[in-house]
Simulated scan of single mutants.
Amino acid sequence: MIRTWTEHPARTGIRRDVSLDFACPESDGQASEDDGAARLSTAAAVWHYPAQVSAPADSARPARRLLLIHGFRGDHHGMALIVDALPEFEIFVPDLPGFGATPPLRRGAGGLAEHTLGAYAACVEALAQALDLGPTDVLVGHSFGSIIVAAHAAQTHPAGHAAQTNPAAHAAQNLPADPAPGSSQSRRWAGLVLFAPISNDIFTGTLLPGAAAVDLYYRASGRLPARWAQVLLRSPAAQAVTNASMILARAPEQVAYIKDQHRRYFSGYSDPNTLLQAYRASSRHTVTEFAPSLDLPVLLVPGAQDQLSTPAGQRRLRRMLPQASSEVLRGTGHLLHYEKPAQAGRALRRFVAALD
């Protein structure tokens, strides 16, 4: 059945469990390759969607594949409508470590690792290598995923190493040490697509009141015993506030779908500590930190009424990117992946066509 919102039938993914083992981004570079403490690992659950529409036999264009990275407190389900809207693409959608079916990151043979932005960015590189994604493919992120993929692309793109322009900021962000150009860790994506990119420091200006309330909620959760933290973090009231503040759709069926998605997957994290670490990573960084180093084609797709970024912040981000284009989606905000998936898919399709 064709979904009204995507203009295409729903797609069914094939789950693949991918073992990842990669360098710890907090390593000071002095640990040996065989030092287990210098490495992170997990078994990533990845959903693979083969292309449903074949390219013309005489097409000279490369068969571009997509790697989609979801946002905070989500998992691969959050990208489902975007996937449906793009039937001609082969797509991979992982659950990030600590969310959905992917366990938290572990450090060597020891306990759980800290889930920093650098760790998530390094995990994307490990996924790309394991899935054999290369220079003809496109990396996509939504919300917190936009920050993760920007951090990853700035670090691994041959012409865009953040440490070359700001070593102190690079170290503070816990990003991996620079790979040598041409090494196996040096990766040139064909392009980068950022849905609802985080362009503003949410603790400033008009975004501050809402951000302060959310921060208080997570800080309070972090001070509670695990049992009570779970009660607060999984509270139906918290979901209701999220729904009331974020949903802009008006069609009853669509509103019901979004609320059901939040009910099913909003609490699909592994444990409160990992969730709080991911919250800190998502709320203390923006795409703008990495924009000057993103020396590759970038598509920005913000919602016109995004609740986590301002129009001025989005314009500033656009000016900072050397090779960027932007398509603003009207009538939606931060939940554009639920509310405007067909429009988001068309924007991505035009961007990819322009790469050829």
Rank of each mutant, 00 (worst) to 15 (best):
S59M: 10
R223Y: 14
L131Y: 05
E327W: 08
G71K: 02
L112E: 12
H142G: 02
Q173P: 00
P97Y: 10
D306I: 02
G210K: 06
F195R: 06
A342I: 08
A126L: 04
W5T: 15
R64K: 09
L208S: 14
M246A: 11
P97L: 10
A163I: 07
P97C: 12
S27W: 04
V46D: 00
L248Y: 04
N243S: 14
Q129K: 15
V287G: 00
S184V: 12
F99H: 14
S32D: 15
A291G: 07
A121I: 04
Y269T: 05
H337T: 15
V138G: 01
V138Y: 01
C123D: 04
L232I: 07
S186A: 13
G313R: 06
A159R: 15
R188T: 11
D28E: 08
P181R: 11
H337A: 15
D34W: 13
L348Q: 11
F72I: 03
L67Y: 03
P103C: 07
V46F: 04
R250M: 11
F266E: 02
Y269P: 02
Q164C: 05
P302D: 07
A10R: 14
G191C: 05
A304S: 12
Q323P: 04
R107G: 01
R264M: 14
A85P: 01
H152L: 09
L20R: 03
Q185I: 00
G78A: 13
M79W: 08
R39K: 10
E327T: 15
G160E: 06
G78H: 08
R39W: 11
D75H: 12
S267P: 00
A344P: 02
R315C: 02
S270M: 02
V140H: 06
G222T: 08
G303Y: 05
P25A: 08
D295I: 14
S326V: 14
F203K: 09
V46L: 02
G268N: 09
L67R: 00
V298T: 13
G333C: 03
T12E: 13
R346G: 04
L81W: 07
P94Q: 05
A171S: 10
D215V: 00
A37M: 14
F89P: 00
A249R: 10
I82W: 04
T274W: 01
